[in-house]
């Protein structure tokens, strides 16, 4: 819903886990997290500026990042911050 409203700058940044299936967005950044989560996401191409499309939200979150189809658990999707595309 909120992605439909016109809001400015950083307000539009939200976690990947909050997006509905079918939403297009770009990766803003991956929040630092203990362990190797950031490294592994970066290695798979989840880096600032990468275009993503949410494909599925249950039971896991599946999204297309550039041309790579990735499946992640919700906790991981919570830390991927994205900017939804303007409709």
């Amino acid at each position: 819903m909120s992605s439909m409203r016109l809001v400015s700058g950083s307000d539009r940044v939200r976690p990947l886990s909050s997006l509905a299936a079918g939403t297009h967005a770009t990766v803003h950044r991956v929040q630092p997290h203990g362990g190797d989560r950031v490294d592994r996401l970066v290695a798979l191409g989840v880096t600032a500026g990468a275009p993503i499309t949410v494909l599925q939200t249950f039971p896991g979150i599946v999204f297309l990042c550039d041309q790579t189809e990735l499946a992640v658990e919700r906790a991981v999707a919570d830390t991927i911050l994205v900017k939804p595309a303007e409709e």
Binding site: G35, D36, R37, R40, L41, L44, G60, V62, T68, E69, L70, A71, V72, E73, A75, V76
Partner: peptide, 12 residues
């Protein structure tokens, strides 16, 4: 020990 995050690439 730890469990790692579920992050997996799905092939076409």
């Amino acid at each position: 020990g730890e469990r790692s995050d579920f992050i997996m690439e799905l092939p076409p």
